[in-house]
Design a binder for these strands. Sequence first.
DNA 1: AGACTTTTAAATGTCTGACAAATGAAAATC
DNA 2: GATTTTCATTTGTCAGACATTTAAAAGTCT
Lengths: 244, 244
Amino acid sequence: MKIDPSKPADLSAQIAAAIRDAIVAGDLIVDERLPSEAELADHFNVSRPTVREALKRLAAQSLIRTQRGATGGAFVRRLSFEDAHSQQITTATLLLSMNAVSFETACEARYALERACAPLSAKRRSADHLAMMRAEIFRQGQPGLTDEAFCASDVAFHRALVDGAGNPVLSYQLAGAVEAMQPLMNMITFTARSRGAIVALHAGIADAIEARDATAAEAALTDLEVYTQELARNVMAERAGRHG
Amino acid sequence: MKIDPSKPADLSAQIAAAIRDAIVAGDLIVDERLPSEAELADHFNVSRPTVREALKRLAAQSLIRTQRGATGGAFVRRLSFEDAHSQQITTATLLLSMNAVSFETACEARYALERACAPLSAKRRSADHLAMMRAEIFRQGQPGLTDEAFCASDVAFHRALVDGAGNPVLSYQLAGAVEAMQPLMNMITFTARSRGAIVALHAGIADAIEARDATAAEAALTDLEVYTQELARNVMAERAGRHG
DNA sequence: AGACTTTTAAATGTCTGACAAATGAAAATC
DNA sequence: GATTTTCATTTGTCAGACATTTAAAAGTCT
């Protein structure tokens, strides 16, 4: 772990980068303890607050955890799929909202990724995954469900589909993409008719997954994408008409 | 932006979470200036170093940028696709290495995602994307190329394929997945024969994209996946044999 | 000797106060 | 009016101190 000449940027950023690089390169392994803040301050020739700012940067990225007490300190943290998942949701959500990504673009990406999971899910899904999909479909058909709850159930349905592929890397990537779209989906008010159509389309997906028919699953997802895009276009058009 | 009862966790983490939530919820818009550190310290009833630790956490997530001087301060930052991209590479790389994700699992996820882009890329790719793919294929055939350079070219090839889909959300998701696999790919020593085979498979992909044949592109990607998986199995088996 | 209690040392969490450096705006000067 | 100077504001950094937590070491009692 090397020095940082006082040239360009914040010292805390440089120190954080140096430690992060060491972790990514494998020089620091999981659960290894970093030197104490005082030792790091001495090593980098900076003050303790500066070191602390660097450590907080790393903590924000879930790269380290800190522990108080006699045997405490900063430890390299094992990045879990769950951590990565929640990080990605935040990132993807902000990315979509701050960059004015169109519903069309986000939707296309989401369903493209989901179709990628479909064949694997058709092949490997357990009875549990299928049962969860059916349960969410049932919930979506219940009357009196708020739009928010409907969207949440939609996310749960797709999550079960993705998890059925049995590949944690895919699950982590996809769950982020699906959940990040929720704010966009929430802009749509679902009528009783559109809910019925979506439930039917979901049932088609579940049927294909149950039959372990990869081709049918992909086709059913495409149908759902087409319907969703159409629904969004209609909502946008109506909104534009009202406000224009 | 609300208070934080001094109950459970670090104050700086609580403050960072409060500000982050405000950003995600849209209460703080892009380029809006946060109160100064002194004002935040006063508002949250903590000291300035504590506020600074919170701000550094947010800066580490690219949520804010800071600027010195009279009109300086912390500003809500527009999260760019580029920022999100590099963040995701770090996250995905660590996720794979720290959780002992098998080559097989990572490879499967990568090609599943890439196949999701293929139809879109076949439909929308520009001449530039195709030219870049061809250029990388040519480079991969050059003798005297290091394994590292070969892998880098491989990444560039796939990046061009993904970018051809013309969907920035897909590009950001996929580029992360592809690049995060590089450390795993680098474990494989590519013989002249295997390089030749990969170049041929890449050519098959490029041909399909050039012909705008989505089905053929997906099939070609599957071929490449099968070959890559086989290659990895052989390398692992040989390595196990040598060490056993 | 063994189990329990107390002490202690090490480490992070937080605060106070201060100075340095950057930066744009206001004031002063030509 | 244009240029230069001054100045106030804000972040970056440092030094030192105290509070809190925690586990191990030391001590005490049975």
